[in-house]
């Protein structure tokens, strides 16, 4: 990117168009040259983004479909064509089915728990009171921390005989202590709790952003008309928050379907390999990358992709159309 006219002073940029500089106006010889130039600019400016995007986002998924049709250990080109066997294998593996179930628990659990909690906290922190900024900052902390940090932190707290157990015993709740991360029936709920703790802040940020878009005049007018705080939230704020809530649901769902980091770091590999704490993504990495079953791993990748894609399209079709119209859909449907 270079300025076409070197005599312009870059410092004059921001608010006012540079004045006082009057170079000879560059005249293109013909309209055709002008058009050609426009196309050069369009192509020149978009090509780098298109190349990187196609190469690292689209092409890999294409390769995944191809690799998934082979039994392949990742050495040399794939040769042993097996058709859809890898897909059949996946759906016959009880561990993979466990992973699917766990993903479903995380998707639904996240929506049902985080949604109401985040809404309540966002409404609370949207009230004007002294110290609000500090409280907001503190509530966002879990969301900013790296997933790995969060995972290790909770692993130390939840480990057998760890901090939580000691705390519960000292409060006389020793009888309720569980093997939080080792009990095959408990671990997925423990992980759901950790995920909720980590990601509810994101929902709160989004909802607060949505709340700040609610015109002050509306709530003010309602309160003049004698509406209570609850009535205002129920009949003005919530309906206006609809688009934000739906976008959050969409992002939360897609994130839950591919959740990897927190699960991988927090859960014990032995428990994961039994399926109790596996998700589709951990199952895919365990089998594809670490067990070097590349064809099989890629089949799982395609399944994960298709599930996410279909879920996204369905959600978009039924909930999101009005909200991000023009962003993902091409045409404005009115």
């Amino acid at each position: 990117m270079t300025a076409t006219n070197p005599t312009l002073n870059p410092a004059g940029g921001a608010s006012a168009p540079p004045a006082g500089v009057r170079p000879a106006r560059r005249r293109t010889s013909s309209r055709a040259a002008e058009r050609r130039r426009k196309w050069y600019e369009i192509i020149g400016l978009t090509t780098p983004a298109v190349i990187v995007y196609v190469m690292f986002v689209l092409v890999p998924m294409g390769f995944a479909v191809y690799y998934s049709l082979f039994r392949w250990r990742g050495v040399g080109p794939p040769t042993e064509f097996v058709g859809f066997d890898n897909y059949v294998l996946a759906f016959e593996d009880p561990i993979f089915l466990d992973a699917l179930r766990n993903n479903a628990i995380i998707v639904v659990g996240s929506l049902l728990i985080q949604g109401p909690v985040a809404l309540a906290v966002a409404l609370l922190l949207n009230r004007r009171f002294r110290g609000r900024t500090l409280f907001r900052l503190l509530v966002f902390v879990p969301y900013v921390l790296a997933e790995v940090t969060v995972g290790i932190m909770w692993k130390l707290i939840l480990t057998d005989g760890g901090t939580l157990d000691a705390l519960m015993r000292s409060l006389g709740l020793g009888g309720m202590v569980q093997a939080w991360l080792a009990d095959l029936d408990v671990v997925i709920w423990t992980l759901l709790f950790v995920l909720t703790w980590k990601y509810v802040g994101f929902a709160i940020i989004l909802l607060l952003a949505g709340l700040s878009n609610v015109p002050h005049e509306l709530t003010e007018a309602a309160s003049i008309d004698g509406a209570s705080w609850w009535q205002i939230q129920r009949h003005i704020t919530l309906p206006l928050l609809g688009p934000t809530i739906r976008i959050w649901m969409f992002l939360s769902m897609i994130g839950s379907l591919q959740v990897f980091d927190v699960i991988w770091v927090t859960s014990v590999p032995a428990v994961r390999s039994l399926g109790a704490s596996a998700t589709m993504a951990t199952y895919m990495v365990d089998n594809g990358f670490f067990a070097r079953l590349w064809g099989y791993g890629n089949a799982v990748a395609v399944i994960l992709f298709v599930i996410s894609f279909v879920a996204a399209l369905l959600f978009q079709r039924f909930f999101l159309r009005r909200d991000i119209e023009g962003a993902i859909t091409t045409r404005r449907v009115k």
Binding site: P60, M61, I254, F305
Partner: peptide
Amino acid sequence: FFTLGLLFPAGAAILPLYLM
């Protein structure tokens, strides 16, 4: 074409990405 990428989960592409 670009916004389509919002629907492509980075996690799902990780194995072929590694191979590439």
